[in-house]
Simulated assay, not measured.
Amino acid sequence: MRSNYLSATDETFEDIVLKSDVPVLLDFWAPWCSPCLALGRVLDVLLPDYEGKVVLVKVNSDQNPKLCEKHKVRGIPRLSLYRNGTEVELIEERTQGRLERFFDERFG
């Protein structure tokens, strides 16, 4: 996985996600989760086209249980969109084509 994303923790979530000037694509994940790693590879391919329009922020669910509890994360990967400090959309798409369409509709 490339390093073209930010990492948030229990301590940094507010500053990185809630105070962001651009929309945030929030990804709860874990390094042992195969679907999480597959989604990460898809995001690595797609997100460079939307640089400056959306920022990817990843939260390691194993290391940040308070955030998982607060956001009611029941399974990973969990992808959502934040605008102006508020979660506005839970993203169910996981394939490259569907995610590309999702990004084009919102940031294209």
Rank of each mutant, 00 (worst) to 15 (best):
T12M: 09
N60W: 03
V45D: 13
G40H: 01
F102Y: 15
G75L: 15
G75W: 10
F102S: 04
D44F: 07
L47I: 06
L26G: 00
A30H: 06
D44Q: 03
R94D: 10
K53Y: 05
V45F: 14
T86G: 02
H71E: 15
Y5S: 05
S61A: 15
Y82Q: 02
L99A: 10
C36T: 15
E89W: 07
C33A: 12
V17S: 05
Y50Q: 05
I16H: 00
E51W: 03
R101S: 11
R106G: 04
T95I: 02
K19E: 02
V17Q: 07
D62C: 11
N60V: 10
F28L: 08
V45Y: 04
L79P: 14
T95G: 10
S34E: 11
L81Q: 02
E105P: 01
L56G: 10
L25T: 02
E11A: 05
T12A: 07
A30M: 07
E105R: 05
P65W: 06
D10C: 02
S3E: 12
F28Q: 03
F13A: 07
F13E: 01
K19A: 02
G52Y: 09
A8M: 02
F103K: 00
T86D: 12
Y50V: 03
D10G: 04
V55K: 15
P48T: 00
K72I: 04
V22Q: 04
E11D: 08
F13H: 04
K72N: 14
D104H: 09
T12D: 10
A38V: 13
V17K: 02
G75P: 15
L46F: 06
V55M: 12
